[in-house]
Nucleic acid binder design. Sequence first.
DNA 1: CAGTATCCTTTACGATACTG
DNA 2: CAGTATCGTAAAGGATACTG
Lengths: 123, 123
Amino acid sequence: MLQVTALTVEEGKLCPIRNVLSNVFGKWQSLILLSLEDGPLRFSAVKRTVGDITQRVLTENLRALERDGYLTRTVDPGPPVAVSYELTGPGKDLVEVLKPIVSWASENFDQVVAARKSYDARA
Amino acid sequence: MLQVTALTVEEGKLCPIRNVLSNVFGKWQSLILLSLEDGPLRFSAVKRTVGDITQRVLTENLRALERDGYLTRTVDPGPPVAVSYELTGPGKDLVEVLKPIVSWASENFDQVVAARKSYDARA
DNA sequence: CAGTATCCTTTACGATACTG
DNA sequence: CAGTATCGTAAAGGATACTG
């Protein structure tokens, strides 16, 4: 069976699922990765694509994604300075497995909304 | 291009990606869904599978997943009472698109850990 | 067994102002 | 332009005790 507990069966080893996914399944991470799907973008372009993320939080999330090796950060000192973010190989792979979930979400949105409505009506 | 902003292009409509995924990409939701992959489990069995989740939080998450229509909750009044949770059709579909990410996480765990180490060494 | 009820802490996030 | 610095809020989660 699948191992999803904090520690794997071999004690002392962290669960890869949790350890990797916790940095991808946040409110913004997957959205940011998806925004880079078609090629590198500059900081402000990522911000525009995601829409309602603050500068502080975007920076924070970009750094975390860079740290995990999903994207690179390239600085072109200007002036004005231009910083662009680009998916790495692993980052592109990750986006590929992320996309089916995104499609699923779009396709099943109505169903989920209906389920919520029916649940709330019963309670 | 993919639409990931809070409001979709047709104003006033919520983004399906965010709206659906925010209830799946939490710390526990995907783990709980995965625990039910092989068939229905009772409350305590889910808890055992996930490992270190508290009763309160597990209950909370199970309710949210039930509300979104991913699983059903069946009570067999005992005594002692036995409650079992089972994936619905949509729940099973969701688990299927979730599994590739889980596999990806397992396969790329070492790489991510290495990336973090190298990033931390530079900074 | 499968929860509720409380209380408390942590973490993520939002708002705003400032800067090389 | 792409951040950093502060401050404040809110949601998620942890610990523990209690119950039909």
